[in-house]
Amino acid sequence: MIVKREKLSLWERLYLPAIIGGFKVTLRHFFRKKVTMQYPEEKWVVPQGYRGAPYLVRDQEGNTKCVSCQLCEFVCPPKAIKIIPPGPAGEIADRPNAEKMPKEFEINMLRCIFCGYCEEVCPEEAIFLMEDYSLTGTSREEMIYNKEKLLALGGVHNDRIRKWKRKLEEAKEQAAFPVAKP
């Protein structure tokens, strides 16, 4: 097939109008607001629901919410989470009545794929994928976050339900529980 090339008109052959048009675009952008972000000094604000790095949170009383149920460890597709349960003699939970919290909680951020399964599966609302998207370190070891670090990064999260506290209060309120102790 032969494509016939159109002949350019005079106005087009002059070139200048096109160049001026180009400069106009340039000039317009020159006075517009800058869009370049000075990363990493400046950080991008992530939208709500963004799945960043998973961190552990505390409730408003500063207590660890994680009870070491290990469901996140189980569900984690890349096996990035490792929890060491407290064992029988281990530290009991700092939350009243919850009985249990992890002795150690590690997330290998190099493995983590930020899928959010851990947040979804957590029955205690103790782990959240937060806005952090740039995790850096100078060694592999450094990228394995331990419990203290995860808790520090996670901060406080409002616990609306306060299940364990409520259970304890309800139990204390139970008038005249008929337990006979000889």
């Binding site: 070491s68 290990q70 460890e73 189980f74 349960p85 064992g87 029988p88 281990g90 249990k100």
Partner: peptide, 12 residues
């Protein structure tokens, strides 16, 4: 069991 208490989740 006190021995097994809070040691490991059984599904593992």
């Amino acid at each position: 069991s006190k021995d097994f208490r809070f040691q490991m989740r059984v599904w593992f």
